[in-house]
Design a protein around this nucleic acid. Structure first.
Lengths: 136, 136
DNA sequence: GATAGACCTTCCCATGATGGGAAGGTCAAG
DNA sequence: CTTGACCTTCCCATCATGGGAAGGTCTATC
């Protein structure tokens, strides 16, 4: 299987497969006589693992750690859970930040009449106006 | 006021002030004879606007548009509201993605005993195991 | 005045994960 | 044997931010 086939078999682009190889996340595969990369079932499995991990928002670094644990048959599942739990709290922190932005913005949008007139509480807020937009 | 003072007056780093100038988000300020940038009250106001906009998660591009509207006394507040509303939906899309990740991860973490034993439903999921982790 | 240190300037490089594209080699079908 | 679809490596771009080097300037203290 060449890189294009591996890409469509895994949903990881050829570009990214080469990149993962370059940064050492995956091992360099065998090459044909004409220098084409050759992938087998094992590599495909690894790439699918990586893809799933990325889909769940793990960084490449975390993905590498998870991959190592996956391949370590003597691992402690506690280590895996710790990585996942850390990731959950990072995600929750991020979500809280975004929700705080949304909360503020919704309030401002609600207060803005949004027509042809120029006066706009959204801009007033950005400009640091201390004008109180009444709590809804 | 030199760039360092402007930075502490606005919470925007000197690095970023220079960057905003470079990309055309702000106008090049006057310079002293020794080529130091000089900022006044207007520039500080603009920088605070930018900072607030970035705090609310607007991109630099959106921030530029908002800044232009702010300075356009004949603006229609509807345009501002449209930018803000678009940003809210982008944020909500992002939040939903992250929440979906958290949901999956919490379920997996809940199913993992997280001790010294190697078997781990988190890794099983990443590896694409079709083993059903029973819905809670 | 000289010197020290805290600033300023420009320039280059790095991040993280991904894509675009050029220049050149290879393979398979017609 | 040509054509088109692949492969290879290499460089560049994204977005917003920071680090740091090399060199110039200002200010306070001796």
């Amino acid at each position: 299987m060449n890189i294009g086939e591996a890409a469509s078999a895994t949903g990881v682009s050829a570009k990214m497969i080469r990149y993962y190889e370059e940064i050492g996340l995956i091992r360099p595969p065998h090459r044909t006589g004409s220098n084409y990369r050759v992938y087998g079932a094992d590599e495909v499995h690894v790439l699918r693992f990586i893809r799933r991990s990325r889909t769940l928002g793990f960084s490449i670094e975390e993905t590498g750690a998870l991959l190592a644990l996956w391949q370590d048959k003597t691992r402690a599942s506690g280590e895996v859970r710790e990585i996942a739990a850390g990731h959950i709290s990072a995600l929750e922190t991020k979500i809280a930040e975004l929700q705080s932005m949304v909360g503020t913005l919704k309030h401002l949008v609600h207060c803005c009449h949004g027509d042809d007139r120029p006066d706009c509480p959204i801009l007033d807020d950005l400009a640091g106006s201390s004008t109180k937009t009444k709590g809804h």
